[in-house]
């Protein structure tokens, strides 16, 4: 099993991705000061926490499965570089005429820590396959089960179709589309059963939503 395909490593990557997205889209929000926080203060701190936590979650399983040779050849240099990077960047960057975003990153210990961790993940990702194999000992990590694409795709398509059809054609066609497509995602597909299901669900949703809750939706647009 590839070490980079473990559940832990990939969820760390997911958290990092969310952190980076939040940093990027929250960039234009004013930070303010701790006394008078701007709209961007809390999002910014949360994004940094996401980056740091994500990096830790990714690094721990990688380190846990490292061999001794790897630790000496890759982990120690990368770790030392990451630790040195933080103070170096903090004190060196202000000496130059750096762009404002770079100066902002260098002035904030929080962001520096996140940056150092991200850099070390990238370095490790590049160096580990060179110095040893990317494979982990069997059973050392929990692998991501290969997803079955059919159910998740069909269910998602079904709901999106429902959303697109509902206001244009009314509830009945949207319902038929959703039930049909979603049933295709299951293991068995029996036409008679699906038709029966559609009939029962149509009656049920008309009774519950249109009559019971008095919702203002057309069953078939323009007719009822």
């Amino acid at each position: 099993m590839n070490r980079f395909l473990s559940k832990d490593f990939l969820s760390g990557v997911m958290f990092i991705a969310f952190g980076l997205t939040a940093l990027y889209f929250g960039n234009h929000l004013a930070l303010g000061t701790p006394v008078r926080m701007g709209p961007g203060y809390v999002p910014h701190k949360l994004a940094c926490i996401m980056l740091i936590l994500g990096a830790i979650i990714s690094l721990v399983p990688l380190y846990g499965t490292a061999t001794r040779r790897e630790k000496e050849a890759v982990w120690i240099p990368v770790g030392v570089a990451a630790i040195l990077f933080i103070p170096a960047a903090h004190y060196v960057v202000p000496l130059f005429d750096a762009p404002t975003w770079l100066a902002a990153v260098a002035g904030d210990w929080f962001q520096l820590l996140a940056t150092a961790e991200l850099l070390s993940i990238l370095l490790l990702g590049a160096l580990l396959p060179i110095f040893s194999t990317a494979r982990a000992a069997p059973g050392a990590l929990e692998a991501v089960e290969p997803p079955k694409w059919k159910p998740i795709t069909m269910v998602t398509i079904g709901i999106v179709l429902f959303a697109l059809l509902l206001e244009r054609t009314g509830m009945f066609p949207a319902l038929v589309a959703l039930v049909l497509v979603a049933s295709l995602g299951g293991e068995e597909f029996k036409t008679v059963e699906v038709i029966g299901n559609i009939v029962v669900l149509t009656i049920l949703s008309i009774v519950v939503f249109k009559i019971g809750l008095g919702m203002n939706i057309a069953v078939i647009e323009g007719i009822w």
Binding site: V155, G158, I159, F162, A163, L166, M171, A174, L175, L178, V179, A182, S183, N197, L201, L204, S205, F209, I217
Partner: peptide, 9 residues
């Protein structure tokens, strides 16, 4: 499908 439909509506 029934659960999906209830969620969607």
């Amino acid at each position: 499908p029934a659960i999906l439909l209830f969620c969607a509506i």
